[in-house]
Design a protein around this nucleic acid. Structure first.
Lengths: 165, 165
DNA sequence: ATCATTCCGTACACAACCATACTATGTGCA
DNA sequence: TGCACATAGTATGGTTGTGTACGGAATGAT
């Protein structure tokens, strides 16, 4: 396996930048479109993400939820605040450990979620239309590798990454 | 044109979700890594992005800069505020049109940029390492198509996209 | 039992982004 | 000229996210 350190000989800097920019761009576009699309429902993408996760694991402590969603405790706390005000979730104290507050969906949230789930699927269908399955898989694998590289650079590889002072 | 509405027959919902999540994830990871990496330099990724663009076109009006960077006028205004405080850019009034303020890099910014440019390249090299050129191109094309779909859904196609009430 | 440590959630401060509304200025049309 | 309209930048307020610091509660060691 001659996996070169660079993607390939002759790769132009602009190619790399273009790709980095594309990811950033597509991600931002998708988020903003989905947010706009979601706005009539009265929730945001981040809020939806929280609710969606709770449909699979209701009653999680805030910390675990934050970890699963890969978001800070503070950010999640603020999200829960708004969701609670909107009547979509409820905080309930854990009886064994008085530090933790578990988050539960309300019936109202369950109703909303059903609508949004299907809508999310339609959104994905539309956005992925005209893309051959094969390309989707190659792109998926590429992004996966990218993700691994990024994760790897968090752990041991940081000395090759920056000033570090 | 039989561009199917779905990417391909048999595409699983989970495939679509996985891909959407991958983009989101990779983008966020990359941003956060780069931000962390950039922090010793005293600027953020967004600020760096502004400066980088100015190296190619110094003296742009705020509005044009905002358009080029695809960010709102307000967001850019706030960015410029901070960059000005940090002594990295300067606002100067246009003589012909007293409404516009043109943004210029300071010498200090030019020094900083030189360092960050090369570092950014190293970062990209590292993150893209082990990815065959061919895959990068396929993934690029896929993301491009995705972007076009997203942009298209802004204009005419919204009736297939959501509740719209 | 007490003390240090660790963990949970929150408070606070800040960066970034969006949408809307506003001021000041320029432009075009009657 | 004068008035409607468009544009540049700012103000304001809301959402999401980060990092740091803090109080309350559990835990482990002595």
């Amino acid at each position: 396996m001659s996996t070169p350190r660079k993607p390939a000989a002759g790769t132009d800097l602009d190619d790399e930048l273009r790709f980095a920019y594309l990811i950033h761009d597509v991600s931002r576009l998708r988020r903003s479109m989905f947010d706009r699309w979601l706005s009539p429902h009265g929730i945001t993408r981040s809020q939806w993400w929280v609710l969606a996760f709770l449909t699979r694991q209701d009653g999680l402590p805030q910390s675990e939820l934050a970890h699963e969603l890969d978001v800070g405790k503070v950010a999640l706390g603020a999200l829960i605040d708004r969701l609670e005000v909107a009547g979509l979730v409820r905080r309930r104290a854990d009886k064994k450990d008085r530090r933790v507050k578990r988050i539960f969906l309300t019936p109202r949230a369950n109703g909303l979620l059903k609508t949004v789930w299907r809508a999310n699927k339609d959104f994905n269908d539309q956005v992925l239309s005209g893309i051959p399955m094969k390309n989707l898989h190659v792109a998926g694998a590429t992004l996966d590798k990218l993700k691994q590289n990024l994760l790897a650079s968090i752990h041991g590889d940081t000395d090759a990454m920056g000033p570090q002072d």
